[in-house]
Amino acid sequence: MLEIKGISKSYGDNSVLNNISLHIGKGDILVILGTNGAGKSTLINILSCLIEPDKGDVFFDGENVKSNIDKYKNKIGIVPQEIALYQELSAYDNLMFWGGLYDISRKELQETADYVLNLFGLYDKRNAKIKTYSGGMKRKINIACSILHKPSLLLMDEPTVGLDPQSTNDTIDHIENLNAKGMTIVYTTHYMKVAERLCNRIALIDEGSILDVGSFAVLRGLSGIKDSVTIKLKNANSTELNKLQFDRSLYRIDNLNNTFHMDCEDINKEIADIIAGIQACNGEILSIDTCVADLESIFIKLTGKMLKD
């Protein structure tokens, strides 16, 4: 559906994007994850036709966007990072205005506006001015205004910035619903938890370059990070741990601290076997501490940087 080929962008001597290439298939959710200033918004702005890249091209359904920009703009929806709404207008008026910029009949627009207001649970407050809405409600209308013309590609630039966890979860639910209905979504964020929830495919971006792209499992494989378990034993010396059936390269025993440590692919699947194995060797377990490889640790491993919430 969307093909980004060799996009580069600089402002003076400051290179913001370096030779970015990505493919987003129909119905995908691509999460672009990166620190602040990594180049996420610049990439979204290029995909939104707000910025022209210095090099490279964007293809939509096989056509170069530059050659048919009006057609492209009619097929995409943009959810900007800011609450880009008219605060003095009601939610309904905002929806009618933003939807009215596209080629939709008034009747169809009214029906769609009612539908999205119901979808986001804001129908009863449709006539209230946006300025009276809470942050979460505003974010919902910010998204709603972008989907009225039923775009096949939705570009979302950090749409949950500043939201509390509950509102963030609600927003993500809506995004997943939209995706389930066939909408292709490109979503930028620096929130790890959001990225983990939406992790159909993740592109890690750092200093204007895409480091890796893939599913969580692929990225984890690329980073080499594994789950781990640390088990505190009553007496590691007296235990017959040399009889353990596990691959010796995966575990180590600290006799001094009486601990057993092991790396594994999926701790949830393997923990029962590990405990059973230790107990089979007469190991007396005092406590179990597990560490699951998450996106944050993968990101840190791959970029050497922390993501800040």
Partner: peptide, 13 residues
């Protein structure tokens, strides 16, 4: 400043 112009420019306008 509040981003509505950019949003308008992302539309076919």
């Amino acid at each position: 400043e509040n981003g509505t112009i950019n949003r308008l420019l992302c539309s076919p306008l």
